[in-house]
Each structure stands twice: as C-alpha cells, then as structure tokens.
C-alpha cells in the first residue's frame, strides 16, 4: 500500500524539512519502520529504548488515533494518510 505520512514542524529537522512523505506499508509499524529506515536521525526522538512509540507523539490514520485501532499493528489501506501529532507547548 502506498500511504502518505504528514510530518509536523517539530520533527521536520530530521526529515530534510519535508512535510509530507510517501511510503509503502500494510501496517502503521511498516510505515514507521520505513520512515526510520529513510531518516535514521528521527528514531531516538520517536521511539524509546524499548522501541515503544514515545508518549508525546500520537499517530493518526485519517482522523483516528491508532491507540483505538490496534496501535502499531493498525492495518492500512491504499491512499491512507498518517499524521504524526506531537505535543507542542508554545503560547507566549
């Protein structure tokens, strides 16, 4: 499946400043593995030492958080859009 991945500003420093990437993958895990394969610098920021997605990043497929659809095992369809949504705190 070809899916697009939207990268937020906070993580674009690790993706050559690209905001949208296209990857092949049948599950969220396969796509995020492909992301880390293409941009290794992003890995420690997205995953902890045990390979778990860090708690300040949410992954949405369409408008739905993967927390409610099976996490990293969430199945994807062709043309799906994945979005990484990190906590940001600015306001002043």
């Amino acid at each position: 499946m070809a899916v697009s991945l939207l990268v937020p500003t906070a993580l674009r420093g690790f993706t050559d400043r690209k905001a949208e990437l296209t990857f092949e993958g049948d599950t969220v895990k396969e796509v995020l593995d492909a992301l880390v394969g293409a941009y290794p610098d992003i890995k420690p920021h997205m995953f902890d030492e045990n390979g778990q997605l860090r708690a300040f990043i949410n992954v949405f497929v369409g408008d739905t958080n993967i927390k409610s659809t099976g996490g990293m095992a969430t199945k994807l369809s062709d043309g799906d859009t994945l979005m990484l949504v990190p906590a940001i705190a600015g306001g002043r």
């Binding site: 906070a10 920021h45 600015g90 002043r92």
Partner: peptide, 13 residues
C-alpha cells in the same frame, strides 16, 4: 499526551 517530550527535542518559541 501521557508524558511530555524529552527536554531539548521540541524547542520553545
């Protein structure tokens, strides 16, 4: 967001 990002990853404004 159960926990914040590690210090230093997301710069302040």
């Amino acid at each position: 967001y159960p926990a914040p990002p590690p210090p230093g990853l997301v710069p302040s404004c």
